[in-house]
């Protein structure tokens, strides 16, 4: 990724040097700048699942910090986006705009018209990705609230003891197919399975029933929460989950990388054509622009 970014800035610099000779190529340089910005956006990881599947506990486990409140009955009401920032900040997002919810007057704002919440915290684990915790999913209409289109990696939570029911399967099928390639199935509450034999049986059933739907399946016990001791994390399956997430994110990054290069090459080639033939109509190829906007939204491979 770094290589691509370096190449992009170099290309931009070179193009800008030639601007005085062919002013039209400033548009190409801007296109490259936009591409650079898009590529360096942090990947977005969303935790989905039915009510009480353990999504919030999983979020806390991934953050290694018990920050999101969880409960035994359905508790999360709206999506919570967690990002990295130096200073802690909580923002509420409504249909009209954003409201800054500082700790003091959080209760005063009317919470019913909040569509989602955004929290910026200085948690080191958020340096690699943004994390979104969601309320329990029961119909496919709720996926829009979660902005599934802008997501890179989906983690689906299911209870290990009652894993992969028909309602979960049909909800999964209504998620756009491209997410199936990298997604991870997280079976929570592994401690309720009596022994390794049971874990193996459930694992093989899940593997058979979810072929093609997930990249990997991880068994987790989220109650070994946030003390950060590596030994404990390994036993609880959190280390394996970290590995899998890393794997999936690398695969995503690789694809972005390849697509990034392809697009950059196209833009630069167009720029070169322009430089060599300065009389050609001075318009950035609309098709290229549209293509990479669509790519960012992810509908092309």
């Amino acid at each position: 990724m770094q290589g691509l970014l370096a190449d992009l800035s170099e290309a931009q610099a070179k193009l800008r040097q030639r601007v005085d000779r062919s002013p039209a190529i400033i548009e190409h340089a801007d296109a490259l700048a936009k591409l650079e910005a898009l590529i360096s956006v942090r990947p977005r990881v969303v935790v989905l699942g039915e009510s009480n599947a353990g999504k919030t506990s999983l979020t806390n486990l991934l953050l290694d910090q018990a920050i999101v409140p969880d409960s035994v009955i359905p508790n999360t009401r709206r999506p919570l986006v967690l990002r990295y920032a130096e200073t802690t900040r909580l923002t509420g997002i409504t249909c009209n705009g954003t409201i800054d919810l500082t700790v003091g007057d959080a209760g005063q704002h009317c919470t019913s018209n909040l569509r989602s919440l955004e929290a910026c915290i200085p948690n080191p684990r958020l340096a690699a990705f943004d994390l979104v915790d969601t309320p329990g999913l029961s119909t496919s209409e709720q996926l829009d609230a979660v902005e599934i289109q802008a997501t890179d990696l989906v983690l689906w939570c299911t209870l290990a003891t009652q894993a992969w029911k028909e309602t979960e399967r049909s909800l999964w099928m209504s998620i756009p197919r491209r997410h199936h390639r990298d997604a991870i199935l997280v079976a929570t509450h592994r401690d309720h399975l009596r022994d390794d034999d049971d874990v193996r049986k459930v694992c093989s059933r899940l593997a058979t029933e979810t072929t093609g739907c997930f990249r990997s399946i991880v068994f987790l016990c989220a109650s070994a929460r946030g003390e950060g001791r590596t030994g404990q994390r390994r036993d609880s399956g959190a280390a394996e989950l970290d590995d899998r997430i890393h794997e999936s994110l690398c695969a995503i990054a690789q694809r972005r990388h390849a697509a990034g290069y392809r697009l950059a090459n196209r833009i630069v080639r167009k720029a070169l054509t322009r430089i060599e033939r300065p009389s050609a109509a001075a318009q950035v190829d609309g098709r290229v622009m549209r293509r990479f906007l669509r790519w960012r939204r992810g509908t092309t491979r």
Binding site: E50, N52, I73, S138, T161, T167
Partner: peptide, 10 residues
């Protein structure tokens, strides 16, 4: 019903 996911939609 299961205590952990009592009264799921199904």
């Amino acid at each position: 019903l299961t205590a952990r996911q009592a009264l799921a939609p199904s």
